[in-house]
Amino acid sequence: MISLFAASLLLLLLLANAADPDPLQDHCVADLDSEIQVNGFPCKPSENTTASDFKFSRLANRGNTNNELGLWITRASVEEFPGVNTMGLSSARADYAAKHGMNPPHVHPRASETFYLFEGDLMYVGFVDTDYKLYATYLTCGDLFVFPGGLCISSSMWAASLRLVQQPASGALACQSRPLRNRSPSLGRGAHEELLNLGGDAKDYERRDRRTV
């Protein structure tokens, strides 16, 4: 009986301490050319690491939004920015065409995301939680929005264009993982279509509890 109690207590302690491990070294710039096969990327030798490995300048450039989605994502994840290897984060710039630019519904399974609108006068963003409730609102330049991890999220200029938006928009994203464009457990029947459309008046979304059963 005592041994069973001890085993249960040990299991609870193990569960309570479950987390991603801390890095084993101060930094681990990814060696993208290494032939070593590991889960991730091996570290570049520290003697060959310089300050330039921790600098990324491509987010300053606007992307080409002349495509079906009216969207261009400039990523700064480990494949493009080796200095963030093992740090548990990545960044990106999202450029949206005026009136129709859209980042379709997607999921970051193990990471939350922040979105900062640094250019443009209006952006529509939202996510659906596991109760099928849609949280959607408008952002103006300078606003920051956080998307909880594992939920289906989207952002759009299409719905914002209902408010006569004439300018393109650009936002800065910060997240640990690349998106998966599939449905998450939070997306029930009908919620997927609502998140795709992201239409209607902002005050209407804020005052109504939009649920799908």
Rank of each mutant, 00 (worst) to 15 (best):
S170W: 01
G120N: 02
S155G: 05
G149V: 06
F147L: 06
S177V: 15
V125D: 04
I153D: 07
P179Y: 02
L117P: 01
S184G: 05
S155R: 05
P148W: 00
V146A: 15
G126W: 00
T137E: 12
L117F: 01
L164V: 13
F145S: 09
R163S: 09
L180P: 09
K133G: 04
V128F: 00
F118P: 09
S186K: 00
L144E: 10
A174V: 08
Q166A: 14
G150M: 05
T137N: 11
A191F: 02
C175S: 12
P185I: 08
S155M: 11
S155N: 08
W158S: 14
L122I: 15
L164N: 15
E194K: 03
F127W: 09
S177W: 11
K133S: 00
D143L: 09
A159C: 14
P185L: 06
L144P: 05
D131N: 13
S186N: 01
Q166F: 09
N182P: 12
D129E: 03
R183A: 01
D131I: 07
A160L: 04
S177H: 15
G142N: 08
F127A: 08
A172S: 15
A169F: 05
T130I: 12
Q166L: 12
Q167G: 14
Y138R: 14
P179D: 02
S154T: 02
Q176V: 13
L164R: 12
E119R: 10
F145D: 13
L151E: 08
W158I: 12
F127H: 14
M157K: 10
G171D: 02
Q167A: 12
D131V: 07
H192L: 03
S155T: 07
G190A: 03
L122A: 13
Q166I: 15
C152Y: 10
V128H: 00
S170T: 03
L122C: 09
R189N: 13
S154A: 04
G120M: 03
P185Q: 00
W158T: 14
A160N: 06
N182Q: 14
H192Y: 03
D143P: 07
R189M: 11
G171H: 03
M157H: 13
Q176L: 12
V125F: 02
S161W: 06
L180R: 10
L139V: 05
P179M: 01
L196I: 01
E193R: 01
M123L: 10
D131E: 13
